[in-house]
């Protein structure tokens, strides 16, 4: 009835099926793979070091995960996790962790996070997407929206410059892609230092295979990798 919602359910069922099927080896591999995927997003307050994303393409396949996976590393929290594609809404992709927290991207560009503490409320992506499509050195503006101490939306206009840099080959979970590296610098009025400097590795066809993007002042920079099988 809800195919999009069903995505995650399928994954869970697939793994459950394996677990329940009495195939001992497969079961433990699948469980391990899910654990490797889980990462440490949701173990705040746990004294143990947060688990990291350690899955491989093979272990994902064994766990029955065939759809795209977004690997996110959040530097400030010292964590990494794999998020599964959960919804596609009007050009935006919602990636969801097994524990229910989400990252939304549009064409690989970070739009919001939910469930990571002081989240990125929202950052406009359309002007940047346009600039990346054009490919050259471009100036444009993006709107940043954050919540203040009273939970009211505060909007700031950012003035950004996108610069193509070198061509690089990046490795995403053991698979190489030829990419163009871009650097984006965004400033706000009356603030001397840039608010952020993002880096994008864009492959042929416009896919952002890898990026380092700002997720608001509290979360800081998030490293994203898109894994497609």
């Amino acid at each position: 009835m809800k195919p999009l919602l069903a995505c995650l359910a399928c994954l869970v069922l697939a793994s459950c099926g394996a677990l329940g099927g009495g195939q001992g080896d497969n079961a433990s591999t699948a469980a391990q793979a899910l654990n490797m995927l889980r990462g440490g997003l949701f173990n705040r307050g746990d004294d143990a070091a947060p688990p990291q994303f350690t899955a491989t393409r093979a272990s994902l396949r064994e766990a029955g995960i065939t759809g795209p996976v977004l690997v996110a590393r959040i530097e400030t929290l010292g964590i990494s996790a794999g998020l599964l594609q959960y919804q596609e809404v009007r050009g935006a992709t919602v990636w969801r962790s097994l524990d229910g927290d989400t990252i939304t991207t549009a064409g690989g560009l970070l739009r919001n996070t939910r469930g990571f503490g002081t989240d990125l409320h929202s950052l406009e992506t359309a002007p940047l997407a346009q600039a990346l499509a054009e490919g050259g050195e471009t100036e444009y503006s993006r709107l940043f929206r954050g919540l203040d101490g009273l939970s009211r939306v505060e909007t700031h206009r950012l003035y950004c410059r996108l610069e193509p840099q070198t061509r690089e080959r990046v490795d995403v979970l053991g698979r190489g892609y030829d990419t163009q590296r871009y650097q984006e610098t965004c400033n706000a009025q009356d603030r001397p230092a840039p608010i952020f400097v993002n880096t994008y590795w864009q492959g042929a066809g416009g896919t952002i295979w890898q990026s380092r993007q700002w997720a608001g002042p509290v979360l800081g920079y998030v490293e994203l990798e898109e894994v497609r099988n």
Binding site: M1, K2, P3, L4, L5, Y86, Q87, V89, V94, R96, G100, D101, T102, R114, G115, G117, T118, D119, L147, G149, S151
Partner: peptide, 16 residues
């Protein structure tokens, strides 16, 4: 304690 640590809801359910 900032309200940002309260549980977040699941994404809005989409119809087929």
């Amino acid at each position: 304690v900032p309200p940002s640590f309260e549980p977040t809801p699941a994404p809005f359910a989409q119809r087929p």
